[in-house]
């Protein structure tokens, strides 16, 4: 079984430790040897997305140094994975080892489906789930087919969820519209960001979601913030939490 370096985004480390633990559970139950290098902090995305690439660069280099020797790097966030795989190139123009490395960095669902070749996980999760397709996972990592493109449909997160016994899906009217988190966008453009989020929540309510899940906790942090303020009866769970719960007897 492969040896995996676990990359836990900073906000998961600080605010959602249970999501990190669920990720460890899922991987270990599948026989993966997991190692969490404690020198890691953040991939630098907030700085890079603000345009402050000179502030992001040292973090990118730290990341590479910390994880370069692992066979695979796995992360429970499409957005942070994409930061490394899609947006790090500029920082490593003169580092030929980066190119092969970045293809060993995976988002969790992607790792399960593409590397471990898992079709169905065992276990049950008898709930009605609304899947939020987080943008960077969807349109940068291509974890699923976006509604904009033409071609055969696939969706790695949904595929894993669909294998759980008792699960049902809430079918949304806008299957992959952005939730409006967008990093610093959430505060820079607070009004639009919150309207986007509330529109997503309303779509889930209409579709009858009991739980909103996603492969990015940042989207869920934003949605949950709105849900809690409005005291709505919806819950949010990271997809790793659902998988871990289903796999735990």
């Amino acid at each position: 079984m492969p040896r995996v370096g676990l990359f836990i985004p900073c906000y998961i480390d600080q605010f959602y430790p249970q999501v990190g633990l669920a990720t460890v559970t899922v991987l270990e139950r599948l026989g993966v040897e997991v190692d969490y290098p404690t020198a890691q902090t953040c991939c630098g995305q907030p700085m890079a997305n603000t345009g402050c690439t000179d502030q992001a660069a040292p973090l990118a280099h730290r990341f590479f140094e910390i994880f370069r020797d692992y066979e695979y790097v796995v992360c429970p966030s499409g957005s942070c994975t994409s930061m490394v795989r899609t947006h790090y190139d500029d920082y490593f123009q003169s580092e030929p080892a980066f190119e092969p490395f970045k293809h060993r960095v995976f988002e969790l669902c992607e790792f399960l489906v593409d590397v471990l070749k898992i079709d169905q996980l065992g276990g049950k999760f008898p709930h009605k789930v609304g899947l939020h397709n987080s943008c960077h996972g969807l349109r940068e990592l291509r974890l699923g087919k976006g509604s904009e493109t033409v071609g055969p449909a696939y969706n790695k997160s949904r595929q894993l969820l669909a294998g759980l016994n008792g699960i049902s899906f809430a079918e949304l009217s806008r299957v992959d519209e952005c939730c409006g988190f967008g990093g610093t966008f959430a505060v820079n453009e607070e009004a639009v960001s919150c309207m986007m989020g509330l529109d997503r929540v309303a779509d889930h309510e209409t579709a009858g979601s009991e739980i909103i899940t996603a492969s990015d906790m940042s989207c869920l942090m934003h949605l949950e913030g709105l849900i809690r303020r409005q005291k709505k009866p919806l819950r949010v769970m990271h997809i790793a939490e659902i998988l871990a719960e289903a796999m735990t007897p």
Binding site: I8, D13, Y16, L21, E190
Partner: peptide
């Protein structure tokens, strides 16, 4: 706090993932 105008902040856990992982 622009975040908190319409949204709650996440409930801060007592311990970070790294601390819990170490204990585990």
């Amino acid at each position: 706090n622009a975040w908190g105008k319409q949204r709650e902040l996440p409930l801060a856990p007592k311990q970070s993932f790294r601390a819990l992982y170490r204990q585990r």
